[in-house]
């Protein structure tokens, strides 16, 4: 009968191993990067209008949870990713520095929206607006838009995942084939 063996053996075409034995051959870098990029937990850091689009990305139509970042952590101590969504003012900038330093390594920053990229529409006469969050925090991915569509944020997120997939453990972090 068909059900003699409890599991059907699956031949992996790439490496020719039998998956049923529970053995995978890979490099440490790839394994760590696979774990990190598929479970990025963002910190709830919505400042202004872009925060609403971030919430819409997390809702059911443009689901962000299928990329692994379902758990929006309120505390920075448990978060991997800070999506700076909205205008950064000078009063808030000191707090952003504190929050970024409270996040444990490895940590990543996505700058979402025109205000976080370069000051946005307030660049000309904004005396209280910080012209871009990269003045205080190192940014990995910039997502343009005012506000960016949820698909644009997802595209930025996937770009960050590709960037993480190219990290190297023993060499410099960002020196890799992108």
């Amino acid at each position: 009968m068909q059900y003699d063996e409890p599991y059907q053996s699956v031949e992996s075409s790439e490496k020719g191993i039998r998956m049923q034995d529970g053995i995978i051959l890979t490099t440490v870098d790839e394994f760590l990067n696979w774990g990190r990029k598929n479970s990025l937990w963002p910190m709830t850091f919505g400042l202004a209008c872009c925060a609403i689009e971030m919430m819409a990305t997390g809702a059911s139509k443009y689901d962000l949870e299928r990329f692994g970042c379902g758990a929006f952590m309120a505390t920075p101590r448990r978060a991997d990713l800070m999506i700076v969504a909205g205008t950064v003012t000078l009063k808030m900038a000191t707090r952003i520095e504190t929050l970024f330093s409270q996040m444990p390594e490895p940590k990543y920053v996505i700058s979402m929206g025109s205000c976080a990229n370069k000051g946005g529409p307030y660049w000309q006469h904004g005396y209280h607006v910080l012209k871009g969050v990269d003045e205080i925090v190192p940014v990995d991915v910039y997502v343009p838009g005012c506000p960016p569509r949820p698909e644009a944020l997802l595209d930025g997120f996937i770009t960050l995942q590709k960037k993480i997939a190219n990290e190297r453990l023993l060499r410099d972090k960002w020196v890799a084939n992108v």
């Binding site: 000078l90 900038a93 370069k118 000051g119 005396y127 910080l130 012209k131 871009g132 003045e135």
Partner: peptide, 11 residues
């Protein structure tokens, strides 16, 4: 404080 309000490169 330590931040430049209108940096040249972004104006």
């Amino acid at each position: 404080r330590h931040m430049i309000v209108n940096p040249e490169s972004k104006m």
